[in-house]
Every structure is written in structure tokens, then in C-alpha cells.
Simulated scan of single mutants.
Amino acid sequence: MILLAKESSSYNEISVYEATQLYGELGKFRYLQFADGAVQGALDLKQPKRMVLEYPRAMAHLMEYNHSSFSSLFVIGHGIGTIAGRYPDKRVTVAEIDETVVQLSRRFFGYSGDNVVIGDGRQMLESVPPGSLDYIVLDAFTAKGTPMHLLSAECFAMTKEKLRAGGAILLNLMGKGGSDRLINAIYSTLAETYACTKAFVLQGEGSDKTEWHNVILIAGSRDMDYRLPDMAGFREMEPEQGYLIVDRKT
């Protein structure tokens, strides 16, 4: 493993590495990682167009399978630009609070889009016209996890207003195996706003209650379908009833 860059910002300590192995797969990889060890994006240097991590592959499948001709997408959380970079022919806006992340994605991962705005994703989304988006993707992390103001009932109600009929919101989250109290709360809060909500966990993970794993949530006004072989190892799960997340009163 070779360290290519290490930067500190107001939000994260960010490193870029190259390695010949990533999550047990042999090859030549470059990846961006936060101080907590979580990989925020990875590039296969031998096949740059391949989506390396499972969760963006699963999210792309959900979006494309349910609305193959979608035209508008709003992404909160840039990483290395994997999801945004997949759709150069669509109207994509990316909100990223940490400018250092964007700089590193351009320098080391070849991101060339001019569609990234620096700032808080919720505030940026509030300025989007109602009913103008097909999909909203929430993939935002700091050292403390997903910011809670992006997971509240008030925020989800706002996202619903921005979606077209048949549109959906997708969330990439990290949780622990077994019964994760926060994942349950996010799912239940989402279900208070949206008529149909589904949850997926990465296959083979989640049995150890101390182990962190990827969880994908999708919600919209109609049921979302999928093909299991295209879900990159994710399987559907049924979270337990959780508490409602609301904005803190100031």
C-alpha cells in the first residue's frame, strides 16, 4: 500500500492510497479514505470505468432498472465522483461540503465534471425547484457518520417535494449487524414520509453485531423493483420499528 496524498480539512482527514489488493480482490487500485478507515471511493486503474465498490453498483442498478430513461439526479456527497461520473449525459448536480474532497477527486481520480457545488447538501437541495428531480442520492459522511440534519423527518419531507412523480431517494449508510438502532430510526423516519421504502444490506455481512456494513435505503411514492443478481451482493432486509428523527430546535 502506497500513500499518495494526505490532507486535513475542517471536516475530515483524507488520504489517497494505491494498493494491489482491496477487500480481498487482487489488482491495481487507487482509493480515497477518511481517518476512520472508511473507503469513500475506489478506482480500478486497469479498468477505470468499472465501479469497484458494491454500493454504487447496487444504487445504479436500482435507478436504471426502475427508470431507465431518468434525466435528473441530485447527489449529496461527492467521494471520487463515481455515481455522478457514470451519467455524463444526464442533468446531475453534486453537493459536497468539503472542497478538499473535490480537489483530490480531480487530482487523483480524474473527475472532470463542472457540476459540483461546495456547501451543505440540504441547503443546496432546498433551492432546487419542486418536482424537478428523478432521483436524490444521499452518500454523505464525516468522521462522525452521516450528518443527522440530512436524516430528519423535515429533511425527508423536503426531498419528497423536489422529486417528480415516480421519483425516489436513495441513501448509502453504515450500520452494525443485528438490530441497529440508528438504521431502524432512519428507515422508520423515511417511511413516515414515503409510501414505499426498502432496505438492503451487503450479503454475508451483518451477523456480527459489532461489525460495520453498508446499508442502502430507497424510498418513493411507488414500489421499487430490482434484479437480485444485479444488486452486487446486497440482499433485502426488514429493519425494526425505530424512533422518529427530527430537527433539533434552536
Rank of each mutant, 00 (worst) to 15 (best):
M1T: 13
M1K: 13
L3Q: 13
A5R: 14
A5C: 09
S8V: 10
Y11W: 12
E13H: 10
I14P: 02
S15M: 09
V16G: 03
T20P: 00
T20C: 00
Y23W: 12
L32Y: 02
Q33N: 01
Q33W: 01
D36A: 04
G37E: 05
Q40L: 09
A42N: 02
D44M: 09
L45V: 07
Q47I: 12
V52K: 05
E54S: 15
Y55M: 04
P56F: 07
R57Y: 00
R57D: 01
R57W: 01
A58G: 03
M59G: 06
M59I: 14
A60W: 01
A60E: 07
L62Q: 03
M63Y: 06
E64K: 13
H67D: 09
S69C: 04
F70Q: 02
S71H: 07
S71W: 00
V75T: 08
I76C: 10
G81Y: 09
I83L: 15
A84Q: 07
R86H: 11
Y87T: 04
Y87D: 00
P88F: 11
P88E: 09
D89P: 00
D89W: 04
K90C: 01
V92F: 08
V94D: 04
V94W: 05
A95Q: 04
E96I: 12
E99A: 11
E99N: 04
V101Y: 03
V101M: 11
L104Y: 07
S112L: 10
D114R: 15
D114V: 07
V117T: 15
I118P: 04
I118F: 04
I118G: 05
G119D: 04
G121K: 09
Q123W: 06
L125Y: 05
P130T: 11
L133E: 06
D139K: 14
D139P: 13
A140R: 08
P147A: 11
M148N: 12
M148P: 00
M148E: 13
L150Y: 12
L151Y: 11
S152R: 13
A153L: 15
F156Q: 07
F156L: 10
A157H: 11
T159H: 11
K160F: 01
E161M: 06
L163N: 02
G167P: 11
G167V: 02
A168H: 08
A168Y: 03
N172H: 14
M174R: 10
G175S: 13
K176T: 13
G178H: 06
I183G: 01
I183M: 13
N184L: 07
N184S: 14
A185M: 05
I186L: 07
L190T: 15
A195D: 14
C196W: 11
T197E: 02
K198Q: 12
A199D: 06
A199Y: 08
A199I: 12
V201Y: 03
L202W: 01
L202P: 01
Q203R: 15
Q203N: 13
D208P: 02
T210V: 06
T210S: 12
H213Y: 02
I216D: 01
I216T: 07
I218M: 14
A219C: 07
A219R: 09
G220Y: 00
D223N: 11
D225T: 14
D225S: 14
D225C: 05
D225Q: 14
R227E: 15
R227G: 02
D230E: 15
D230H: 14
F234P: 13
R235L: 12
E236L: 05
E240F: 12
L244E: 04
K249C: 06
